[in-house]
Amino acid sequence: MAGKKVPFYEEFVVFSRKTPTSPCQEQFTLLAPNHEIALVMAQENFMRREKVCDIWVVKRSDIRCMTPEERKTLNRIDNKDYRNTKGYGYLAKFWRKLDQGMLDEKEILSWSKGRVVE
């Protein structure tokens, strides 16, 4: 009976998207013989209580992860205020004196409503 070991199912990584504008998020991995089967099992395995608008399955072997050595390339020095709003916080005080608000995230994202004439 000791036959040759048949190759078992492949590993798939499941991703989902909550709303059309949210980023895709990794859920978990599952075993399946192919993409189609992986897809039909994905939602009920990982998102039984969660509503999503899209699901991706990706063969794990198609994902190039970093090696532990490569993960060291992800460190950065904390000296980059110049590229963050943190480096410009002092402007708030300046604009207040001129009766103007700060162009912060709240203000700028509020512009998405467009021009509303009162």
Binding site: E70, K72, T73, L74, N75, R76, I77
Partner: peptide, 13 residues
């Protein structure tokens, strides 16, 4: 020690 944290990326790149 500080600068060393950013060199691995530069080198790999």
């Amino acid at each position: 020690v500080k600068i060393d944290t950013e060199i691995p990326y530069h080198l790999m790149h």
